[in-house]
Structures are given as C-alpha cells and as structure tokens.
C-alpha cells in the first residue's frame, strides 16, 4: 500500500543534481523511459474518458437477468456481444471496467493532490523553520505513520459510514505524512546550501526563499512522490472498496467491481480477475514511471 513510504527513505537524500554533461546520453535514455511509460497511462486515461462518450459500449448499469455471469468471449458460452462477460446481474463487464476506471483514476489524482499539497507545505515549513515548529511537525508525522491507513479508515468510517468524501479524507490523512517527511529532509538540506545564505544576505524574506528557490529545486522530488502517490491512492481505494468501506453501488470503481466478484468467484472468476488485472497494470505502470522519474532526476538514487 505504500510505495511512497519506502521511497521516502530512498529519497531522503535526493537533491536536485546538476547533470554532469558526460551523462547526457544516459539522461536522454531515461527521459525516453519516462515517455514510454507515460504513453500507456495516457492511453488508459483516454480510453476511460472518451469511450463511454462514444456509445459503442452497452450501458454499464443496464441489468439483463437472463444473461447473468456470461463468460468472456474466449470461453465456451461467451460471445463478442459481451467480450469480457457479464456479472451476476447480467451487466456488461467491459463497459463496467471502462466506466469504473473513471472513478478509480479520478480518485488516484484527487487522492494525490490532497496528500501532496499539504504534505509539501508542511514539509517545507518544518524543514525551513526548524526549531520547535519542526519538533512538533516531526512528532505529528511519526504519529501519523504509527496509524496504518486501514486503522484510520476504520476509525472514521465506523463513525461516518463510507462515501467518496470520506475516502478522500482518508487519502489526505494517510498520504500527507510520508510526503512531508521527505520534503522536510530535502528542505533542511537545501536551506544550508550557500545560495540560500547568499539570498538572505541580500535581504530576501523567508517566504521568497522557500517559494521561489527551495520549492522549485524540489520539483523532481515532488513529481516522484506524487507519481508514486497516485499508485498508492488507487490501491487504497481498491482495498477500501473491497472491504465494503469505499465506493458503494451504484457507483462503479475497479475496487468495487473486484469486490462484487468475490461472492461469485467460483462461478465467474473473470469479474474479480479482470478488475484486479486492471488495477495491477495501472499501478505497476505508475510505479515504473515513478522509478524512471527518480532516476531521471537523480541517477544515483536508482534502486532497482
């Protein structure tokens, strides 16, 4: 669930390196890796956004009680009218997957923004101000990390029930701390850089130094963190939906489709399998992209 958390440790010393000119060729190759990984992701996004608008797929909510649990086309009894089969209410699985991808990707993006923005700001504040502000923030980060996301989700949902809003709150509450930890460490290192002292000597305010000089130099780190957080958010969404704590019918997300396939697993393996495959492929691509970005911004820090 936390690609971000482990990368936090790995990132801890990333400083935006000035690329030595000798490594230019390798750098270009890495940029190419970033491109090649972005393309399939962009393709997935395009498909889930555009295809439902074209009207080529059946209505994902339309029930056909005479066509329940149809297998995919490549199995006996399957047909191209429902290429990936149907679920227990006879709804077209392909159409549901495409439509469900919208909510899943949306949650991936929104869940990232709500985690990375506060995480970055808090990390900047703690790393730049140091002193008691830092002590307090660090304690909060540790306390946050001491509460596994499922526990936080459980504590909130036990009270509020589940909804999209609660899901976003859970993503914000669980995602800011790993990000803040990395940004704090990076900021502390940057603030000791001599150009920061030079700017202070020229009379620049702390706000200007942080926003105009520290933050831009952290772009690479933040891009990597945000990328990995997209994967984390998608996994968290699917896990909570799977536990019936996330997206509730009639809304559709990949996690919710996966969950709905569990009770018919032995009769219709394809429902959970395809939904899980969709999640795995997208998260894997996102994680690969995060890795590629990490080595793009700082080749030394590549781990695998």
């Amino acid at each position: 669930m936390s690609a971000t958390e482990s990368t936090a440790t790995e990132l801890a010393a990333v400083t935006p390196a000035i690329a030595p000119s000798a490594a230019t060729a390798r750098r270009i190759r890495r940029s190419r890796a970033v491109l090649w990984l972005s393309l399939p992701l962009a393709f997935v996004a395009l498909v889930v956004i555009v295809v439902p608008l074209l009207g080529v797929l059946p209505d994902p909510h339309r029930q056909h009680l005479d066509q329940t649990l149809l297998p995919p086309f490549f199995l006996d009894g399957g047909s191209m009218s429902h290429p990936l089969g149907t679920d227990k209410l006879g709804r077209d699985l392909l159409s549901r997957l495409v439509t469900g991808g919208r909510l899943t990707l949306l949650i991936g993006l929104v869940g990232t923004v709500v985690a990375i923005v506060p995480g970055t700001l808090i990390g900047l504040l703690a790393g730049y101000k140091r002193g008691w502000v830092d002590t307090v923030v660090s304690r909060f980060i540790e306390a946050q990390l001491a509460l596994p996301f499922v526990l936080i989700a459980l504590a909130i949902i036990a009270n509020r029930g589940s909804s999209l809003g609660v899901l976003i709150v859970v993503l914000a509450l669980t995602g800011w701390a790993p990000c803040a930890r990395v940004v704090r460490a990076e900021t502390m290192a940057l603030r000791e850089r001599q150009f920061v002292l030079g700017l202070r000597a020229a009379g620049a305010s702390s706000a200007r130094i942080v926003l105009r000089h520290v933050l831009p130099n952290l772009t690479g780190v933040i891009v990597v963190l945000a990328t990995l957080q997209v994967g984390t958010a998608i996994l968290v969404e699917s896990a909570l939906s799977f536990l019936n704590l996330g997206i509730q019918p009639p809304d559709i997300s990949w996690g919710q489709i996966l969950a709905s396939g569990r009770e018919v697993l032995t009769q219709a393996w394809w429902i959970s399998t395809f939904a899980g495959l969709a999640i795995t492929v997208v998260v894997l691509l996102v994680n690969l992209l995060g890795d590629a970005l990490l080595s793009h911004y700082d080749p030394k820090k590549r781990k695998f």
Binding site: A3, G231, S238, F242, L258, I279, T280, N287, L288
Partner: peptide, 11 residues
C-alpha cells in the same frame, strides 16, 4: 519486487 508493490494484496 515492483510487481509485489503494485498488486492489490486482497486480489
């Protein structure tokens, strides 16, 4: 290792 980090556990 990367697969392990990308697969939903429950799936």
């Amino acid at each position: 290792a990367l697969l392990g980090q990308s697969v939903p556990v429950f799936w």
